[in-house]
């Protein structure tokens, strides 16, 4: 495989999506086990050990890499599944594991020292000092940066720490500091940090009331919209709330992050890898997004400056796109 312009790291919610991502030109895919050890613990999604071993073989045969996300926080008295996941990822010959909890990092450092460790976005390391702490204490090689930093912040962090960084290039905007957001458990009782499910589908309901659609999470109304209005998936941070008697998308609009037109700036900032979000999305989405990013990266490597932004509009959340925190005005 030739050295890429930027490493393209792509989601694989299922074995079929893993193959789709690799066939569409992913340099690396990331996936998780079929349990609460990863932050996309949705029913029917993710890998068992046999599937992971097959997936790693498929990727390695094509010169690509597989990362395993073990990025939730174990509950007290129940750490075994996380330790098992670390050991099994090593056994499956995964290229790295993506971790968030300090306890799990400690376990991996001691029990699988040779397995490369990446720091998950769930660890919320948004500054050079935090990143240095994880590097010095647990030998972390790469950090996935939270979606709250501007390009200038990213560049400064890289310069200061010399760490490999992976930044979100496409997916949700994620306005909150991830891994420390308890809004979903506040409304559903199920914790994204421990159970790996934000806004679990089991607690989501759509109701029709007086010609209007209402989306609810638990017993909380998150939004009301006209029947034909595009409706975001009802996570608490994408809800519409009333302050000062006026309803608005207080935290974030139904809009997707797309940094495809910022790739030269991200490269100049020293970023190592681009992360495409969406393990919960379909393999059709994966193939489409990965394929488009592959084209964009190849074009950049050839010195072209063609814009690819419009190619992905129809798969973006709410059909709209933003640069998110990368541009300062967003805050």
């Amino acid at each position: 495989m030739t050295v890429s312009y930027l490493e393209l790291v792509c989601p694989a919610g299922t074995p079929a999506a893993l193959r789709a991502a690799i066939d569409a030109g992913a340099d690396t895919v990331y996936c998780g086990y079929r349990n609460c050890t990863n932050a996309r613990n949705y029913p029917g999604l993710n890998f068992d050990q046999d599937e992971l071993i097959e997936g790693v073989e498929y990727a390695h045969a094509r010169g690509r890499k597989v990362l395993v996300a073990i990025n939730t926080f174990p509950r007290a008295g129940d750490e075994k599944p996380w330790h098992k996941a670390v050991d099994e990822a090593a056994e499956a010959k995964a290229d790295a594991i993506i971790l968030a909890d300090i306890g799990v990092l400690d376990y991996a450092t001691r029990h699988q020292p040779h397995l490369r460790r990446h720091l998950s976005v769930q660890a919320s390391a948004a500054n050079a000092m935090s990143v240095s702490f994880y590097r010095d204490r647990f030998g972390v090689k790469r950090v996935v940066l939270p979606r709250v930093l501007s390009i200038e912040d990213v560049a400064a962090l890289i310069e200061k720490t010399g760490m490999e960084t992976e930044v979100f290039a496409f997916g949700s905007v994620g306005p909150m500091s991830e891994g420390r957001c308890f809004l979903s458990s506040y409304m559903t009782g199920l914790s994204p940090t421990s159970e790996g499910v934000c806004a679990p589908a089991s607690h989501v309901a759509y109701k029709e009331e007086g010609g209007c659609m209402k989306s609810c999470l638990g017993c909380v109304t998150l939004n009301q919209f006209e029947k034909d209005e595009p409706a975001p998936y009802p996570t608490p941070c994408k809800g519409r709330y009333i302050t000062h008697g006026e309803a608005r998308y207080l935290f974030e609009e139904p809009i997707g992050l797309n940094a495809i037109d910022l790739l030269p700036q991200l490269k100049a900032a020293g970023v190592t890898a681009l992360k495409i979000e969406g393990r919960q999305r379909s393999r059709a989405y994966v193939a489409e997004v990965v394929g488009t990013f592959r084209k964009a990266l190849d074009a950049l490597a050839m010195g072209s400056s063609k814009s690819f932004a419009n190619d992905l509009k129809n798969v973006a959340e709410g059909g709209r796109e933003t640069f998110g925190a990368y541009k300062k005005g967003w805050r």
Binding site: F73, G103, L105, D106
Partner: peptide
């Protein structure tokens, strides 16, 4: 605001 959810993390 720092996550301590389990014994291993606490011990670290």
């Amino acid at each position: 605001f720092i996550n301590v959810f389990n014994e291993s993390a606490r011990n670290v």
